[in-house]
Design a protein around this nucleic acid. Structure first.
Lengths: 188, 188
DNA sequence: AGCCCAAAGCTAACGACGTTAGCCAGTCGG
DNA sequence: CCGACTGGCTAACGTCGTTAGCTTTGGGCT
């Protein structure tokens, strides 16, 4: 029996790809094993179980989104940055629905949770977007929650097909960005 | 063997309660049967299976939210209505996380889908909120998507414990309502 | 070069769960 | 009072996640 040369990273990466293809709930240990040319029990040499697997996919997704955001925000500020950030997140969710679905779950558990770190990086990027607006420091946390709620809600609804098709979603997206931009620009 | 007096409504109601208690993913046919004093196969006399069950829970949830919204919006308009609607949805999700989780799933399927009807009632209420604002008719759809995305995203993040505890979530909620209210009031 | 043992794969098996088939009793209309 | 429909049951199967325990590989140390 030849070695397959697996390690946690390879397994998680394959699982993430599979999740995007068939949907997170359909990522079964058997299917993943088959994809990797291995028998299901062998996977347990690399991940602790299905829960652990999903958690690792979530970390991967948050890390990737964080990277994408960092790239997208380079040299941008204000409305430009807001639009870029929103577009980046929306694009990622549409492109990687399975990965993103893994992040919609679990409360942070341990104190030194690797998911926390990845999540914080995303938050940092969103906070950077707010730098370009006259937001009172005490309101920053609220504005951050606005951005998170809105991007998350929009992405989930679009990915789940929750919007009727009558009107273009792109148009709504642009409208929403504009709405937030205007609201954040006001100083009173 | 005495009759248990079940019917679809009783089964779905019990399942919804169970979902709120133990979380939707943990609503197993066995657990639900036990709760109803019955053996698992008996449930299939009333619902077609687990997928059907979740779908019916979703319809129940949308119907209840629709009712709550209708009540909450009685005699209110403008900012008052907006705040009432947002509070109603937020309250429902916190009170019935399992039921709400059932609605976060897939695209309407059949043409005469009972879920569509229930969903439309909710949308109608949200549209009524917008009546009190100077929103251009062509922008109504966008504003509706704003409300849906924001309420949904906020509710999910709060229910999932996605917000850090440093700052009060109630405060952020009030800030968000205010933000949307101001944005919708402007006419240009 | 050759040994050795940790790691990585395997088979077998178990328990939980959803679901189907088929049987039997309780109830209700005629 | 009878019969048939209905709602409950037991038995059984397939899938899935997971554990136990065996085998083999291959890298590192002598």
């Amino acid at each position: 029996m030849p070695r397959a040369g697996l390690d946690p990273a390879v397994v998680v990466s394959a699982a993430a790809g599979l999740a995007d293809e068939v949907g997170l709930p359909n990522v079964t240990m058997g299917l993943l094993a088959e994809r990797l040319g291995v028998r299901p029990p062998s996977l347990y040499k690399h991940v602790a179980g299905q829960a652990d697997l999903v958690r690792r996919i979530a970390v991967l997704a948050l890390t990737e989104v964080g990277d994408d955001l960092r790239d997208a925000l380079q040299g941008r500020a204000g409305r430009d940055a807001l639009e870029a950030a929103a577009r980046t997140i929306r694009h990622y969710v549409l492109e990687h629905p399975g990965r993103y679905a893994a992040t919609v779950r679990l409360e942070p558990q341990g104190p030194d949770d690797p998911m926390d770190a990845a999540g914080k990086r995303v938050l940092t990027s969103l906070a950077a977007v707010l730098e370009g607006y006259p937001v009172d420091p005490t309101d920053t946390i609220h504005a951050l929650r606005l951005l998170r709620s809105l991007t998350h809600g929009f992405a989930v609804l679009e990915a789940a097909g929750g919007f009727q098709l009558d009107t273009d979603v792109d148009e709504s997206f642009a409208w929403l960005v504009d709405f937030v931009d205007r609201g954040l620009r006001r100083t009173d």
